[in-house]
């Protein structure tokens, strides 16, 4: 399993946090929400991939 995925997602989270503050400070709140949503979609795509990989490993290992 790759540990660097954790740091990648943490970096995305921090980036989105900074962007949100920047955008909301300059009055463009709707774009801040769009940035959060796109980041969430990217993160969820990675999460779903990792979870399906893990559950396939569990299925093979325990013969479920």
């Amino acid at each position: 399993m790759n540990v660097d995925l954790i740091f990648k997602i943490a970096a995305v989270g921090i980036l989105v946090a900074v962007l949100n503050i920047l955008l909301s400070r300059s009055g463009r709140d709707d774009q801040a929400l769009m940035v959060t949503l796109t980041a969430l979609v990217v993160v969820l795509a990675l999460v779903v991939q990792q979870i399906s990989q893990l559950f396939n490993m569990i299925k093979e290992l325990f013969g479920l």
């Binding site: 995925l5 954790i6 943490a10 989270g13 503050i21 959060t36 969430l40 999460v47 893990l54």
Partner: peptide, 25 residues
Amino acid sequence: IKKTNPEISGALTLIICTVIAGMTL
């Protein structure tokens, strides 16, 4: 990142669980 966007931190905890479970398996 929990204060600003809690949903990404929830996803991060999920990824940590999968990485550790992958190692133990």
